[in-house]
């Protein structure tokens, strides 16, 4: 699925890598750190200081204080996201991200899970499975005073798919989420199973979700089919009632992540028609 606020906090002047590092290094102004962390991820910085500074920013997190107007963990969240984009250099940050997976802030757990998925961190499988083990009624239950779930299930499920280790224990943890009441969670579970097993039934389940009455669900299913690169879904993707931009992103996923039939030429013709 799409990362909720992966955009810059404000449209600023273009800055240099040195400036981004400087902003992240200072500690007086957290909005500057926030921007610096975002920049390093967005630009896929290869600077040797980038990963250590992002690790440091990730450790800066603090317990949530609901009375506090400023969102202190925003910098840590952006640092986690940036680390996810800096594979393979960010492998050294995997232990920090594993710690963060246990943080009390669920937004931060979500960002850490996504980053671990992007880094294909097989070390994280056990912790991810543990978080999900209580199933839709536990990890997948809605929090008392918030629409959020007890655990960031979508991110946790997708991380398991991105890591891509097809083991019975992983499948057993993911499958119950196919019955979750929220279609976005069902979509994430189907995507993960498709990535892990390649079985057509999970792809077909995602294709069914392309017809869902809610646009948000259709968008998620598009992104999930793209992430799994499931080529047999290409015509259903093209026919979905959603923005062409998203269909093009999904089809790009089929071209780049998938293989087999249909071949590149048919997929590219399908993309050409959506421009």
């Amino acid at each position: 699925m799409v990362d909720a606020d992966a955009s810059p906090p404000q449209a600023g002047e273009p800055i240099s890598e040195q400036e981004a590092l400087r902003r992240l290094r200072q500690s007086e102004d957290s909005s500057q750190q926030y921007y610096g962390a975002w920049w390093l991820g967005r630009m896929r910085s290869q600077h040797p200081e980038a990963v250590p500074l992002l690790q440091q920013a990730l450790r800066q997190r603090r317990p949530r204080d609901s009375g506090d107007g400023v969102e202190e963990n925003a910098v840590a969240r952006n640092a986690a996201r940036a680390l996810g984009k800096l594979a393979p250099a960010a492998q050294t940050a995997i232990p920090d991200l594993l710690d963060t997976l246990q943080d009390a802030d669920d937004g931060l757990r979500e960002a850490a899970a996504r980053a671990l998925g992007q880094l294909a961190a097989s070390e994280a499988i056990e912790a991810l499975c543990e978080k999900l083990a209580s199933g839709p009624a536990g990890a997948g239950a809605q929090q008392a005073n918030s629409p959020r779930l007890v655990e960031p299930c979508e991110a946790l499920l997708e991380a398991l798919g991105d890591i891509g280790v097809n083991e019975p224990r992983v499948l057993a943890v993911v499958k119950p989420f196919l019955e979750h009441e929220r279609p976005l969670i069902r979509s994430a579970a189907a995507r993960t199973l498709l990535q892990l097993s390649g079985e057509a039934r999970w792809g077909e389940l995602l294709v069914d979700l392309l017809d869902h009455p809610q646009l948000q669900v259709r968008r998620a299913a598009l992104m999930d089919l793209g992430a799994a690169g499931w080529r047999p879904g290409f015509q259903a993707i093209a026919a979905t009632l959603a923005e062409n931009s998203l269909k093009l992103m999904a089809l790009r996923g089929l071209v780049e992540q998938g293989n087999g039939d249909p071949g590149d030429e048919a997929l590219l013709a399908c993309m050409d028609a959506l421009l």
Binding site: R44, R252, V255, E256, D264, E265, L268, M271
Partner: peptide
């Protein structure tokens, strides 16, 4: 190039 998407390369190739 690092910032060029494979799908763009494949389309140009075709």
């Amino acid at each position: 190039a690092a910032d060029n998407a494979p799908v763009v390369q494949r389309r140009a190739h075709l």
